[in-house]
């Protein structure tokens, strides 16, 4: 990051290689329109380049700062266009299921229904609850790091997480039980 602050564009590329994937995943789950995600990701790294001098290592890790930039861009985008994008059932999404493990059609249909129900339930969460949950669940962020990214108190993050988990559990209880029954 010190090299980026010294206007070394190769160092920026190195940061993109190292952190671009995680940021992309977060932006995709928050705002799953692929063209928007690419643009937001680019914009986040351009902001890193333009405002590199503002980053203070003693105040936040670079990943925390980057996610904060990405999160704020995502919120700005939502406010600007006033839409809440439903999470797409995108055929290009890799489900990481090898061909040899493909299930019977009925089971595949049930699984698809379950996936859609989960995506819908997550998409319907209020923005900050969704952010907090995704950052903890998929990016291994501590509650304090989430608080730093969302710029709210630790207690507020814990409250957001509790409400998000309660809401999801209520909505998806049938799928959680089904999962347990099939295990």
């Amino acid at each position: 990051m010190a090299r980026v602050q010294a206007r070394d564009s190769e160092a920026l590329e190195h940061l993109m290689v190292r952190h671009g994937g995680a940021l992309h995943s977060y932006l995709y789950r928050m705002n799953p329109n692929p063209s928007d995600v690419d643009e937001l990701g680019q914009e986040a790294f351009l902001r890193v380049w333009q405002h590199a001098g503002r980053w203070r290592p003693e105040r936040a890790r670079f990943s925390t700062w980057l996610f904060r930039i990405g999160h704020n861009l995502c919120i700005d985008r939502h406010r600007k266009y006033r839409w809440i994008a439903p999470i797409k059932t995108d055929e290009t999404v890799e489900t990481a299921e090898p061909t040899s493990l493909r299930r019977a059609p009925d089971q595949a249909f049930e699984e698809e229904q379950r996936r859609q129900a989960v995506r819908r339930a997550v998409a319907e969460l209020p923005e900050r609850q969704r952010s907090a949950l995704l950052l903890c669940q998929f990016h291994g962020m501590s509650n304090q790091q989430v608080a730093d990214i969302l710029e709210i108190s630790l207690a507020a993050v814990e409250s957001l997480l509790a409400r998000a988990r309660r809401a999801l559990k209520e909505q998806l209880v049938q799928f959680i039980n089904t999962d347990q029954a099939t295990q």
Binding site: E13, M16, V17, G20, G21, H24, S25, Y28, R29, P34, D38, G41, Q42, F45, I87, D90, T92, V93, E94, T95, A96, R114, R115, V118, R119, V122, Q137, F138, R165, L168, K169, L172, F175, I176, N177, D179, Q180
Partner: peptide
């Protein structure tokens, strides 16, 4: 069970880091 369900249901396509760079 809820966490497993989330992980299984919210996959993300491979990031196109080269294109982004």
């Amino acid at each position: 069970g809820l966490e497993d369900l989330l992980r299984a249901s919210l996959p993300v396509p491979n990031p196109t880091a080269a294109r982004m760079r």
